[in-house]
Design a binder for these strands. Structure first.
Lengths: 200, 200, 200, 200
DNA sequence: GATGAATGAGATTTCATTCAT
DNA sequence: TATGAATGAAATCTCATTCAT
């Protein structure tokens, strides 16, 4: 088994990142001790500093990874303009499903990026902006009601995603697909029964 | 100025609680130093231990206060059965407004109880259960669509409350009343324009 | 019930001394907290300093009381010269019994004076000197063997008293009278059976 | 100078144990500060916690070492049955001398184990039981008088050992050999002169 | 004679981080 | 690439003692 030079170091680095993500996600930044991380990675404390400048540094790197992963994802799922109305819902569901899938594939990073990072609020703001942009476009295109404040809706949507992620997705109680469908259903049609809508 | 016995001590205790809540909310549990709390309360470190057994103890007391405040509130706003359909939305708005009002009146405690406490998830679960109970009752009474999974909706509702609290309510960007109205509007009627609903 | 002025203060002082003696005896100097003493005496911390200058002060006073009690006792039981041989043992037993009685009457002080006080060693040295003096006199008078080093015997005697006090006297397993008799018996006649002594 | 791996750490640990034993013996548990121990061992405070979990832990380890040393010793000096009477005293002296030698070789540990440890009383009880067992065997074999309560004698013997250790052995005023001989002499033959015994 | 409230001083312990190898 | 050993800095908490009433 031939391995290039520097292979062992990269392995160690990766093990440290994984161990750190798990610990941070489980316990939070302060509760997580370097000594625990290195133990789980099968290394010693000084080795840690071979790869990361500080505890903050590794934490930041995890957050950075989360952000760029999320960035790539969102870049890839912009709703194209001129979608046909009958496909809109389907596209929305698809997009949401991709987001949920990404989150569930990186549960530790998700917990860190969405709830533990000092930048968590910033990250969510970025997401909200993105959602808002899309929602506004659809609204202007007449797909959505014109009489709702989209800023509020965007926040609501993120809140729903966030909450469902924590309570249903990460614990494995629901699949990304089902969650996406249900979320879109509620958000699009609302809770009132059809007749009562007809009445109005 | 006549003051009853024990007055000064109670004052000090209250000042400590307030200072602590502010610091915890701002910085989190670990970043908050007892030394900062007492300084802000105009006392010295040993005095802190006159009133609280430990840093954990004061943190827990704040959380407890939040929970019981919230408990009292929710107990007082149960939807009465047999409401007339045309009043339901109005009652929902009213209930939500009371919740938002409570949260905005106790911003520090809110941040602690909803996001910083180890029990935060439990607290939210309790809230969700309560919401779920109510929602199910309305659903069975025919006020809501029968084909949505209420467990999911309850989570969504909480997620919306949570998010709007952080981004609009606590920063003072929106009043409880407006938030409640918008939230109910979106949740009840959904995002689709009226015609498109009619179409279906 | 008429009580002279200052009565209440003296009562408080006594209660403090008693509580302190008990705590010191039970837990040692450092483990004993002023807060515990005053609680047991039904007072508050500042009141303590009305009667004693410091924790050391009350400790010292207890030790002082023990020493003077012991001093009075020993002064009163000096063996008179010219005792008749057949009465010697009986007098020894009597003297020892008085010592044991004193100790068992003041169990807390005894524990403090003999084991906890920094001066404990000094107190015991004083006792040893006293014993030694007496023993030497008896030895010179021919009551005791001439070929034993009395300094050693004095230490042995004190060691026996000390140990029997802790293990049998204070726990109430033996009476002063019985202990005194047994101790004298062993010390005077030794352990060997009579014949074997005769043989020599 | 070739030294095996882990050598330095073991050295530090030993230095800490020695420094601690000395300080504890000299000043007692509470008066002994970790800062003093580490200073004497040429280390800093955190290093202490590299080797011992707490101040209690190092204290307990010293006590443990004392107990096991003493245990090994006592296991090795049980009097064999069927000893000839004329050799008994000699064997007793020998056994005692070994005990005294052990104690004087570990003066700090001795002070801690016999006087400072919370378990000191337990340790002495164990020793007393051992003595008692031996004494009873000899008594039943007819080597000792049948009319003395051996439980009392065992306590006396331990008291003598204890006291002589503190006053003569540890300060270096007497050798183990001489102390053992004197102690056995007094304990076996008692204080009365030979004639007076004959008289009886 | 007594107390509610407060504090100065200091001890143990923790943890991220570095040195020397 | 890795580690055994060590440390700087700081935080929590305790307790005897005092102030003001």
């Amino acid at each position: 088994m031939v391995r290039e030079k520097g292979w062992k170091g990269k392995e160690s680095r990766k093990r440290l990142l994984e161990a750190a993500a798990e610990e941070f996600a489980l316990r939070g930044f302060h509760e997580t001790k370097i000594s625990t991380i290195v133990k789980q990675a099968g290394l010693t404390q000084p080795s840690f500093y071979l790869y990361f400048a500080s505890k903050e540094a590794i934490f930041d790197e995890i957050i950075h990874d989360f952000r760029s992963g999320l960035g790539e994802l969102t870049a890839s799922i912009r709703l194209e303009p001129g979608i046909e109305p009958e496909h809109l819902l389907q596209r929305l569901v698809q997009a949401l499903e991709m987001v949920f899938s990404f989150l569930v594939r990186n549960p530790h990073m998700t917990r860190i990026g969405l709830f533990l990072a000092p930048q968590a609020e910033q990250i969510k703001e970025d997401l909200t902006s993105l959602l808002l942009e899309n929602l506004r476009a659809e609204q202007e295109a007449g797909y959505f009601r014109a009489d709702v404040e989209m800023a509020t809706v965007a926040e609501c949507l993120l809140g729903m995603i966030e909450r469902l992620t924590v309570t249903h997705l990460l614990p494995g109680k629901q699949t990304p697909a089902r969650l996406a469908k249900q979320l879109v259903d509620v958000l699009m049609y609302g809770m009132l029964p059809r007749e009562s809508k007809a009445k109005e």
